[in-house]
Design a protein around this nucleic acid. Structure first.
Length: 538
RNA sequence: GCGCCCGUAGCUCAGCUGGAUAGAGUAACCGGCUUCGAACCGGUUGGUCGGGAGUUCGAAUCUCUCCGGGCGCGCCA
């Protein structure tokens, strides 16, 4: 139909010519012209049998390909600020990134997984100060906690550790701590100026060394918690890249220098700027502030330069959708450096909007109001959480009903798929109990006996798996895998209810057992990509 | 105000590189267990694909515009 236009003929006539030109094949029973110009191929049964042989032969590797062979990808994901525990919003990026990484490996890419740790900058100062103020409270000081401080309970935990290990060694009177600090918002002041004043006093009173110790106590505790959380969620990393290391290694300076050499930087009002508008950004961006401190953007430039210099063919960043406005300026950096901007692919993951008791929940690390990823995992289990997250297209806004997730976990299609797997395992257990035996490797299996419609449907679905994986990987769309597995499980359950596998006819029995064992294999392979277990019973 | 993302069945979502009567789950109703696990299966009901215009032989899919929702527009990160 596409060609017809170019050839100036109508689609049906062209289709007839094409059909006439197609050579005969044993695998094709007949070819038909249909509708506005479709060509339908009716396959001979033997064509479907190929897939069973392929799955038996390839086993765990069925679905693998070498499309990306020799190509290296760096995938950076989650990278949440280490200022508090991961919440359910981060879980989506974690599940998406982990699944995408596995998918890309499945189609042959070499993938390195990386977490960028923002352990420098103002957020860290606010964290350290928040901890110290809670510590002072534990020392018996009476004080009003700043509006802009981190108010979560985990801050108390860190403060308690600090107090236990150091007693009152870092105590200062509330008067001196709040000396010359501008009023907080509730008192009619500016909350930003208020917290900045407290930070300045903390640094002055504690001295650089102790201040750093307070900060690191918090950073280590929180980052350690994040690592453990992700690990338990089956989300792994090859590298935890520290923002601080950019300064220590000179990479920050190096990144700025490289950008300077392109001639797209300039100085204005005592600051160093990047003329990102040369490359389509909305406005120019500051690299080095008037006070000499580099911006977060400067660090990020250095980080991306570093990534590029490590020799990757492709960089993938997974960010929360709230950072979408940041994409043009990072792309502008690549353009300025003469790199192809397509080399960096930023995947924006939309927020999960949480509902509890039918009401929308607002989450904020700062205010301490959030549902943690850990709570969710403990409530619904890792498998259900992983599957639920990755069932939705990443750029789709997602409604997450916590009550539903907790109370009726059977709503999650993951159980439907796992059940199919467990059911097949159960059939093989039954087989043993009934004193039958089955060897998948026997060479006298006769798949011509698989003549039922349900069996053909199953074989067709199974044969689509490798192509599905390829598409899901290359389009960065892991959600296709979940939907496919649901369809496969549905084909199986339908088959199961319609026919008996363990029959007295050994030939039919063996053929059917071979078929369902390939179904089990594909379910296992697919769930494995999603980071979900394939239980033998449930 | 400008920019990006989203809008498909009562609800939660697929389908979007243009193709045949728009699909699942769930909810509602009907039916199926003496037989390999009923956490299952079959069926019925349910849709102006947000509205409008355009391109095309053909539009949920591409373009424009409007409406509705989310997010972003710092010498914060």
């Amino acid at each position: 139909m596409v060609l017809a236009k170019q050839l100036g003929t109508n689609p049906r006539q062209l289709a007839e010519k094409i059909i006439a030109a197609i050579p005969e094949s044993e695998l094709v029973k007949k070819i038909e012209l249909a509708g506005p110009g479709f060509i339908n191929f009716f396959m001979a049964p033997a064509a479907y049998h190929e897939v069973i042989h392929a799955i038996i032969k390839q086993g765990d590797n069925y679905g693998y390909s070498e499309t990306g062979k020799g190509k290296k990808i760096l995938l950076e994901y989650v990278s949440a600020n280490p200022t508090g525990p991961l919440h359910v919003g981060h879980g989506r990026g974690a599940a998406y990134g982990a699944t995408l990484a596995t998918l890309l490996e499945t189609v042959g890419y070499q993938v390195d997984r990386e977490y960028y740790v923002n352990d420098a900058g103002r957020q860290m100062d606010i964290l350290a100060t928040s901890i110290w103020l809670r510590y002072l409270d534990l020392c018996g000081e009476k004080l009003t906690f700043p509006t802009n401080g981190y108010q979560g309970d985990y801050i108390w935990d860190v403060a308690a550790t600090l107090h236990r290990d150091n007693k009152t060694a870092y105590q200062h009177s509330t008067d001196t701590v709040f000396q010359a600090v501008p009023d907080d918002e509730p008192a009619g002041g500016d909350k930003e100026k208020h917290i900045d004043g407290l930070i300045a006093n903390a640094k002055k009173l504690l001295g650089a060394e102790i201040y750093r110790k307070v900060l690191d106590t918090g950073l280590d505790a929180i980052l350690g918690d994040i690592r453990k959380d992700l690990q338990e969620f089956g989300v792994i990393y090859d590298e935890w890249f520290r923002e601080r290391s950019l300064v220590d290694s000179g990479a920050l300076k190096h990144g700025i220098e490289r950008l300077k050499k392109t001639g797209h930087t300039f100085e204005k009002a005592g600051a160093l700027w990047f003329r990102s508008t040369d490359f389509g950004d909305e406005k120019d961006r500051v690299l080095i502030r008037e006070n000499g401190a580099p911006t977060y953007f400067a660090s990020d430039i250095a980080y991306h330069v570093n990534k590029l210099e490590r020799g990757y063919d492709q960089l993938i960043d997974i960010w929360g959708a709230d950072h979408h406005g940041y994409v043009p300026r990072v792309k502008a950096v690549l353009a300025a450096l003469g790199e192809a901007t397509e080399k960096l692919d930023v995947a924006l993951v939309q927020f999960a909007v949480l509902y509890q008791n039918g009401k929308k929940m607002q989450m904020s690390t700062r205010s301490g109001e959030f549902v943690t990823l850990r709570e969710l995992r403990h409530e619904v289990g890792n498998d259900a959480a992983r599957f639920f997250y990755v069932m939705r297209k990443s750029e789709q806004h997602m409604d997450f009903d916590l009550d539903l997730a907790k109370s009726q976990s059977n709503e999650n299609p993951v159980y439907y798929i796992q059940y199919a797997h467990a059911r097949i395992c159960s059939v093989f257990r039954q087989l043993k109990e009934k004193q039958f035996s089955f060897d998948i490797k026997q060479n006298n299996l006769d798949f011509n006996l698989l003549s039922e419609d349900h069996e053909r449907d199953l074989m067709v679905t199974l044969s689509k798996y490798p192509e599905l994986i390829e598409n899901a990987a290359l389009n960065h769309d892991p959600h296709h895998v979940g939907h496919y597995l649901r369809d496969l499980a549905n084909d199986f359950h339908t088959y199961y209810n319609a026919h008996t596998f363990i029959t007295d006819d050994a030939k039919i029995r063996d053929a059917r057992l071979a078929l369902i064992s390939t179904v089990r294999q594909v379910i296992k392979n697919g769930l494995s990509i999603l980071g979900v277990s394939a239980p033998e019973s449930m």
